[in-house]
Amino acid sequence: MAEKKLGDYIINVKNIYKTFPNGVKALCDFSTNIRRAEVVVVIGPSGSGKSTFLRCLNGLEEIDSGEIIFDGIPLDDNKKNRLKIRREMGMVFQLFNLFPHLTVLQNVMLAQQLVRKSSARLAKSVSMELLEKVGISDKVDSYPNQLSGGQQQRVAIARALAMKPKVMLFDEATSALDPEMIGEVLDVMKTLAKEGMTMICVTHELGFAQEVSDWVIFMDEGKIIEGGTAEHFFNNPQEERTKLFLSQIL
């Protein structure tokens, strides 16, 4: 892929541990750093802690120990810090999680008005612009359950983008979609990547990883087994675990 310029570190993750109440060790001494404008793809077998890592980054899961610093702000017990960080991080979920009682437009407008305190007019114009960008501008007054899965996910991306986040987190954004709808969502994600959005994507779409990622992380049992550029990663993996995993899914 074309060379692009990465910025300084925006997220520092240092030695985080996360054990679930049922005793499952989801993250074990996990450390990584993410640069501005970097597209990081996290892959690994199910249960390897990929989603947990993502959910720890914006505080949806609490870490047991370790340190997460986002753009200079530590993610700790301070509620204000947590809200500040969440405001700057958009998240897209596997099951979309749109608000079913609000229209598409209201879904995208809501947080701008409540959190960013935008006026209704400004929020609406920003929302319309984003919905146009993801190709949903003709369905703004529909309710989420009137849309296809791919359309819902694109609305969810627009909803997250409406907060003008510095980082976007994608938690298996295409895993719940019918095969013919995966492409339309990946296209939106690729556009974002090319525009220089900092993205961390948990995904099984290796084609996507090869095309747009700057860095690929392979995780297993709560640890990073191997990390590298897509080229290195897919053509010349070093670790046995990685080779085994790639041989199973390729």
């Binding site: 949806l60 998240m91 999680n97 608000f99 909803r159 907060m163």
Partner: peptide, 11 residues
Amino acid sequence: GQWEASHSLGL
């Protein structure tokens, strides 16, 4: 997921 979506937006 409704809680998580709302929290992730900073509400």
